[in-house]
Amino acid sequence: MKKIQIVFLFVLLAFYSGVYAAICQDYIPETAPDSAFLDHNNSLVTDTRTGLMWRKCTEGQTDEACSEGVRDDSLFTWKEALQHVKAVNENSVDGYSDWRLPNKKELESIIENRCVVPSINENFFYLFPSRSFYADANYWTSTTVAGDPAAAWIALFQYGAIVQGKKSDKFFIRLVRGGL
C-alpha cells in the first residue's frame, strides 16, 4: 500500500488549495454525519450509533476550544500513550476516570470517509492544525498487531486508512469511554 500513499500525496500537492478545509465528495455517503453525534456542549461528544463518548480534543490540546497545545508534546509512543491514559484517569479528566485508548474498530467508527484532509467530522473532533496536509494526523489504537507485537494499529485521519505503526514511533491520541 506504500504505492497508494505516494500517489495520494502527489494528488494532494497538486490539488489541495492550501485553504483550511476538508475535501469532501457528496457522492460518497457520510460515515460520521452530524446527526450521529450528541454534542454535550463541553469537551465531550457521544456517538449515538455506538454509545461511545469521545473527547473532542486530541490529547495535549489544553483549552476548551482545542486550539492550544504543543504538537511535539502531544505525540506519544504506544507505551507513553497507555501511561498517559492512566494518568488522565487518575485525575478524573472531564469527570470520568474510565477513559481508554480506542481499539481499532472504535477508532474506525468515527472516520468520515466522505472527506479527506482530514477524514473526520471537524464539527466534533479536533486535530492539530494541518501540517503537510495532515500527513501526521495518525492516532494510536489499543490494538496490537497480532503478527508483529512491536507494532499496533493506527488510524490515518489524513485519508481514513488503518495501518500498522511501530510502538516506538510517536503518534497522537484521542480518548474514548463507554460503549458496549
Binding site: 495520494f8 494528488v11 465528495q25 460515515t31 479527506v116 488503518i162
Partner: peptide
C-alpha cells in the same frame, strides 16, 4: 465506498478495501 479525493486526481479512482491477511484498511485501485 469509493475513496474520497479530488475528481480527476487519480485518488478518486480507488475504492476501499480490507486486507484479511493481517487486517489493514486502505484504498485499492
Amino acid at each position: 465506498q469509493q475513496s474520497s479525493g479530488v475528481p480527476g486526481s487519480g485518488w478518486d479512482l480507488y475504492s476501499w478495501g480490507v486486507n484479511f491477511n493481517e487486517g489493514h484498511v486502505d484504498g485499492v485501485p
